[in-house]
Design a protein around this nucleic acid. Structure first.
Lengths: 338, 338
DNA sequence: CTGTTAGCGCCTTCAG
DNA sequence: CTGAAGGCGCTAACAG
């Protein structure tokens, strides 16, 4: 573990010169620069991150906070966030909140506060006031994806619009008996994305003069195909009030619904139309009409936004970027049978 | 950003006493300890990680290297690795290798070398000799999951055994025309897991006196349902050599194969038996017989192993832990039709 | 263009 | 049980 002193001695210069030659931030003669670089390489010298941080205050490290890792939205977002940040010369420290409350709290009050990070990214994490206060006290830039955070730049889609768009698509096709499968709830640790999709669904119905029936909403406990399957069976098996269309608030649920319909001998879309949300790769495979939210694009913009903030903290920027959604029509929706 | 000096002044003691009181590692009177703790909390004092690292050499940080994040095996493993490491008081810095070669190289030669981490976890990453040399030079413990690394403790399943077990299951049921869907290749960046599964498959066939036909092996380009679907259609549509059973080297491929069979009017398992690998949640939903590899269990053991190495570097331990696999029989396999 | 010097914030001997 | 002092490895003025 050669240090800067070893390089300096070996090259016959001072440590300051080594530092300058290697960082390229100051005037050094071409000759000594090459010499120093050669010696450094020969000795396998790698600067110590902690010493660098201690003296400069910079860490070249970004804290990324997620509620889960092993779910589509999060692993997809993380994939591009980590890749892009590495390209930009940053390391990524990952904080997974899917743990007990004690450790969750410690992430906000300790880990993120130890001057370990230059900035924090929150991926769809909703925080309590005290958590936000702890985070804000660190006085580092915060950017957020998928949910609003006070004082942070934020990128998100309008989930209400997603719900409306999906429902309007079905209404336009003449459907009036439209059910929804979703996962709403008022857990303070999560954003209301799914409630908002439901709000959009209900608003669309009301504007079309249709009163949403309580029985048309089926609550699931997680975003799995199996859950969508079970919910759709309930919905479609109802002898009196079976819907002609289903709005599933994620593509995985939509896939489950489609499989349930098929298993019941119903044809999609002739007997029942299905719309999802996400544009998951499964939606493509199963030919499911969906609302594309382009998570990769959102993640790329998030990284770009953060790098801008880091370079130029004073710059004026929109606080909230409303990411556009798009209806992708595939084979799972058609006009209602008359 | 209160520092240790502020706390010391405010509490009327020396910085040394503050350090001792807060770390709890040395004798401090109960009285002053409480006092210091109170003052520290009031001032919102959080020790600086870099200063701590600089003086102790410890980082409380683990580097985790993965080839991808957004794939089942990796997001599942990461989920528990991050959670367990946070519980144990470690931060996790995540290095995603799914980037160009320049940045990949830089991860090994720079990022991981800056004394940023106490240890490195490699999740199914295969490295070149020079990458391994760079990593070894850092002189920190390395543990690996899913593939052997020289000098590292490693946890993995036997992929050859997985291939054999799946194939033997089918052979025992009287099948002789057994096809395989897989993803082999000789990319130096990846382990040969899928080739090994194929080796196991071919060995099992040979031991049963069956010569594996080249046409029975279908290569796919990634682990997606859509790929399994396309491959199975090819296999099952063959007018002369259609198999009666398919071994898919992942559950996602197996799901695709099952859907393809159904779309062709074939019944599973009456007309064609299907076996997968992983015990993915989809395998449960679709009733697919599979080889369980319990990724969560492997990840937990990996973390435990790493913590042991960290606590007691000299301790004798097995270099390679062979994680047990288990055949989970579901509804997708049955005796061959006579 | 290069060397000298003074810390960055903390832990850890060594005295008391 | 507590304080004083040195130093972890590096960068950023400030002189030369």
């Amino acid at each position: 573990m050669a240090g800067i002193i070893d390089v300096a001695r070996e090259a016959g210069v001072s440590t300051a010169t080594v530092s300058r030659a290697l960082s390229g931030k100051d005037y050094v003669s071409e000759h000594t620069k090459e010499l120093v670089e050669k010696v450094a390489k020969r000795l396998g010298y790698v600067p110590s991150a902690s010493a660098y941080t201690l003296v400069t205050g910079r860490t070249r490290n970004i804290g990324v906070v997620v509620p889960y890792i092993d779910r589509w939205f999060f692993s997809t977002a993380l994939e591009t966030i980590d890749r892009e940040l590495v390209k930009a010369g940053y390391d990524v420290t990952l904080y997974n909140l899917s743990t007990d409350d004690v450790h969750r709290k410690s992430i906000f009050t300790n880990s993120l506060a130890r001057k370990r990070v230059d900035a924090v990214m929150c991926i769809a994490v909703r925080m309590s006031d005290s958590e936000l206060a702890a985070l804000t006290a660190v006085n580092k830039p915060i950017v957020a994806l998928g949910g609003l955070i006070n004082g942070a730049k934020c990128i998100k889609i309008s989930d209400t619009s997603a719900g409306r768009l999906a429902t309007d698509h079905l209404l336009t096709m003449g459907h009036t008996k439209i059910a929804m499968i979703g996962l709403s709830g008022n857990d303070e640790k999560f954003f209301r994305v799914f409630d908002e999709r439901r709000d959009g669904y209900e608003t669309a119905l009301k504007l079309a003069g249709i009163a949403p029936k309580p029985g048309w909403y089926k609550q699931v406990s997680k975003y799995a195909i199996s859950e969508g399957y079970a919910a759709a069976k309930q919905l479609l098996g109802d002898p009196h009030h079976a819907p002609t269309a289903i709005f599933a608030s994620s593509d995985e649920l939509a896939v489950g619904a489609m499989l349930a319909a098929k298993d019941m001998g119903l044809k999609v879309p002739e007997d029942v139309s299905i719309v999802g949300v996400d544009n998951h790769e499964l939606a493509d495979f199963f030919g499911i009409t969906t609302i594309d939210q382009n998570v990769t694009g959102q993640a790329e913009l998030l990284v770009k936004t953060m790098l801008q903030v880091l370079e130029n903290p004073e710059q004026e920027m929109d606080q909230v970027i409303d990411w556009p959604i798009e209806l992708v029509v595939r084979a799972s929706t058609t006009k209602v049978r008359s």
